[in-house]
């Protein structure tokens, strides 16, 4: 990997997540090598990097799903944050008879589902679905949803946790243009209103450029970190992805959006 200078962090912002020399090895192969980075409180922090860079592994370490060396500090000491999680590809049994409403309620309702859904929780589930423009899916079975519909339902589930930290792994993977637009705008709006921290793994550099407030460029190690304008330079991107990256340049930022190809910008320019 090419040597890239680490960029300064976002000043005095308190971190919601701090990765401290996180190392993951499998079968003698290093997947993450002493990764140290932060996700500032209230930020939209994007983790970008090529395939095999360890992005999802870093999220799984954060969620306690895999063993790692080093330290991951979540929130303030003694106050673990509520986490909402939206996985990239959900492996589940599509033959399971489970309605979307039951899926959204089952983590909250104490009374077994065979006695029916609690009225208040059912209403809450419908509101969450309406938020992601998926209220028409409430009575469908989860196994019958398309990839894009499932992503919306998973986002509704993650938001229902009322998270302090929302962890999204490739949220727009398999989602159509309209769906991606919802994800972009809805998440930004909610983050501002509710003040949660968003940690997102994404391949979509245009969307990251437009929406992220903090970027961690990962290729087994942290190659660069900081605000998008500083981290996503042509030099850094070329160093991380190992090829010429013409998609994004550091001047195509929200302040002068001409070159941004994120769906929200496309929508605005079409209008």
């Amino acid at each position: 990997m090419a040597a890239v200078d680490l960029l300064p962090l976002n000043g005095l912002l308190e971190p919601a997540v701090r990765f401290d020399e996180v190392t993951v090895e499998r079968g003698g192969i290093s997947i993450l090598d002493k990764v140290s980075a932060v996700a500032p409180q209230g930020s939209c922090t994007a983790i970008i990097g090529p395939n095999g860079a360890g992005k999802t592994t870093l999220l799984l370490a954060l969620l306690g799903e895999i063993d790692y060396q080093g330290r991951i500090v979540l929130g303030a000491e003694g106050h673990p944050p509520r986490v909402g999680y939206m996985p990239q590809r959900l492996v589940f049994d599509r033959g399971m008879p489970l309605t979307v409403s039951e899926f959204l309620v089952m983590g909250f309702q104490k009374r077994p589902l065979w006695f029916g859904l609690n009225t208040g929780l059912r209403r809450q589930a419908r509101e969450s679905l309406a938020l992601v423009q998926a209220d028409h899916l409430a009575d469908r079975t989860v196994g019958a949803l398309s990839g894009g519909e499932l992503q919306r339902v998973l986002l509704a589930l993650a938001l229902q946790q009322e998270p302090d930290l929302l962890v999204l792994d490739e949220p727009s993977a398999g989602v159509d243009f309209q769906g991606e637009l919802i994800f972009c705008e809805l998440l930004e709006d909610l983050r501002r209103k509710r003040g949660f921290t968003q940690l997102v793994v994404s391949h979509d550099l245009a969307t990251v450029t437009h929406h992220a407030t903090h970027v961690i460029c990962l290729n087994r190690r942290v190659a660069a970190e900081g605000p998008p304008r500083q981290a996503l330079t042509a030099e850094n991107l070329t160093a991380i992805f190992g090829m010429h990256m013409g998609l994004v340049n550091s001047r195509s930022m929200p302040s002068n959006q001409a070159a941004c190809s994120a769906p929200c910008c496309q929508e605005q320019s079409d209008a």
Partner: peptide, 11 residues
């Protein structure tokens, strides 16, 4: 049964 990782993360 649906997905243990999702269940674990959601407490």
């Amino acid at each position: 049964g649906f997905n243990p990782t999702l269940a674990q993360v959601h407490r």
